[in-house]
Design a protein around this nucleic acid. Structure first.
Length: 205
DNA sequence: AGCGGGATTAGC
DNA sequence: CTAATCCCGCTT
């Protein structure tokens, strides 16, 4: 039963970098409760990004900025932070750390496992495929609508973790260069390949 | 009130 | 490379 493997609050009660690394390979589960039953979608998380809060200029919570939009990030860990970007796409994040510590992990891509019919390679596409929007902001990820679980069969393909700079945050100066984007290098479903310099560095070892 | 821009995507 | 599209955060 998947629910027994649902990640506990303690998993999210750590810094965003740690959570972002460990979320790669986990299963994101979306359950649509309809009058005629429940529809379950499952995707393997293959790409994440950590946003470290006040000091991280790439984060929405940079400088401790607390506004109606970012309020959820200041709340307890293990909840969904969903925002609208470019007037047309939603992005799903997982709140981490602790109350008053506005850190989060952006879920950037999934590899379909069950019930996913459209592309999930990119944060906007991921939300579109799972029907996630601003109405899910603040949702508890230990609930039954959206949650994350450890794969039922650990014997499946192992994660080959790779890291590189985060996407689309060039305005953040040195923070844009931190290797806080994590991908499963064994997956062909990430939104974009890691920079060649990173790959070269890894191969050179 | 008004204004500028964005943790993206698709299309030329 | 650029348009699309609109909410939000900050300035007047």
């Amino acid at each position: 039963m998947v629910s027994r493997r649902k990640l506990p609050r303690s998993f999210y009660s750590r810094d965003a970098i740690t959570v972002a690394r460990e979320l790669v390979g986990m299963h994101l589960v979306r359950v649509l409760h309809t009058p005629s039953g429940a529809v379950r979608q499952v995707g393997r998380i293959v790409e994440t990004e950590a946003y470290m809060g006040p000091e991280d200029l790439a984060a929405h919570s940079a400088g401790g900025r607390r506004t109606p939009r970012t309020e959820t990030m200041f709340g307890p860990p293990g909840h969904a932070y969903v925002y609208l970007i470019y007037g047309m796409h939603f992005c799903l994040n997982v709140v981490t750390a602790a109350r008053e510590v506005p850190q989060a992990v952006l879920l950037r891509a999934l590899e379909p496992v069950a019930g996913i019919e459209t592309r999930t390679q990119g944060p906007g596409l991921l939300c579109r495929a799972l029907g996630i929007d601003r109405s899910h902001d603040g949702l508890d990820l230990l609930g039954s609508e959206i949650f994350i679980a450890r794969p039922a069969h650990p014997s499946e393909r192992p994660v080959r973790l790779g890291a590189g700079p985060r996407i689309g945050v060039d305005y953040a100066g040195i923070w844009a260069k931190k290797p806080w984007r994590f991908v499963d290098r064994s997956s062909s479903f990430i939104s974009r390949p890691l920079p060649s310099s990173v790959v070269r560095k890894r191969l050179a070892r």
